[in-house]
């Protein structure tokens, strides 16, 4: 088999374990910069104070290798598997979950997953992860870990709008969702928006939107313009850091789009708190 590269699943498990710890101890650089920039622009004194505390908290977590937030999340793992990669040594899903368990137990991260939605029982190691796998060209394996906190996830919403509601309806839905989240979802937020596709696709778009680095607008100009417009409207809500007033309600708004069915106009909003953690590696 020419041009096929072997990757042992133990290597995947080890990488996932490291990424779980890294993501939970280190606020990504783009988020840190956005918090600092927001503190400079914030007009509310209590807002500035809270943004300062968020930055200080991130400094302590990184220095002491402790989690930024006690809610170390549901572990969402994005895998991009090159089609010329041959995974050997075992089951990929099992390896990812083994990595999550090792990362959370060994890394002093909180185990927040109940085995059954109503019968309960903590799984004890934060497994299972939510795993998204894509096959892509090449011989590399890209792994991204997103520890997604429950408080902000709870404020996320999805609507199957009518085509007649259109873009204006979608904008109203996004701003209304942020207003409803209010102080509950730990603002300042990163607001991920999906428009188009199917019921499942639009939720995936919204979640992938929060993965995009802060400061990088969508490459399509009309989508970038929508991101700017939504950001401005959200700023005008005046919710502010922790809902105590100010202009910094969102650190960033990212929109992803996809073609839609002639009958549907799906829109989804995935709310991410300021503890916007993620980490990635290429094997």
């Amino acid at each position: 088999m020419p041009n096929v590269r072997e990757v042992h699943v133990d290597e995947v498990a080890g990488a996932v374990a490291r990424l779980c710890r890294q993501a939970n101890y280190h606020l990504p650089e783009d988020v840190t910069r956005a918090v600092e920039a927001a503190a400079e622009r914030e007009t509310s004194p209590v807002g500035r104070e809270i943004l300062g505390q968020i930055a200080e908290n991130a400094g302590i977590a990184a220095e002491e290798q402790v989690p930024l937030c006690q809610d170390t999340g549901f572990t969402v793992v994005y895998l991009e598997v090159g089609q010329d990669v041959h995974l050997v040594g075992g089951d990929l899903t099992e390896a990812v979950n083994r990595g999550v368990a090792e990362g959370y137990v060994g890394g002093f991260l909180r185990k927040s997953i109940l085995a059954h939605p109503w019968e309960g029982g903590n799984t004890g190691d934060n497994t299972p992860a939510v795993i998204h796998t894509e096959i892509v060209p090449g011989d590399r394996l890209h792994i991204r870990v997103l520890p997604k906190g429950g408080g902000s996830e709870n404020k996320s919403r999805l609507a199957m709008l009518r085509p007649a509601d259109g873009l204006e309806g979608a904008k109203r839905f996004v701003v209304e969702t942020v207003a409803m989240a209010g102080p509950d979802a730990c603002p300042p937020l990163i607001v991920g928006v999906g428009i188009g596709g199917t019921f499942d696709k639009v939720a995936d778009l919204a979640k992938r939107a929060i993965l995009r680095p802060i400061g990088r607008h969508h490459p399509r100009p009309e989508v970038a313009a929508l991101e700017r417009e939504l950001y401005d409207e959200i700023e005008r809500l005046g919710i502010g850091p922790q809902g105590l007033g100010g202009r910094t309600t969102a650190l960033w708004v990212a929109v992803e789009i996809f073609p839609r069915h002639i009958a549907s106009f799906p829109v989804a909003v995935n709310i991410q708190c300021h503890s916007a953690r993620q980490a990635e590696v290429v094997l």
Binding site: I50, Q53, I54, E56, N57, I60, A61, E64, V66, P67, L68, C69, Q70, G151, C186, Q242, C273, H274, S275
Partner: peptide, 8 residues
């Protein structure tokens, strides 16, 4: 209390 400042 300030949410997301868990270490502080």
């Amino acid at each position: 209390a300030v949410g997301g400042a868990g270490e502080l």
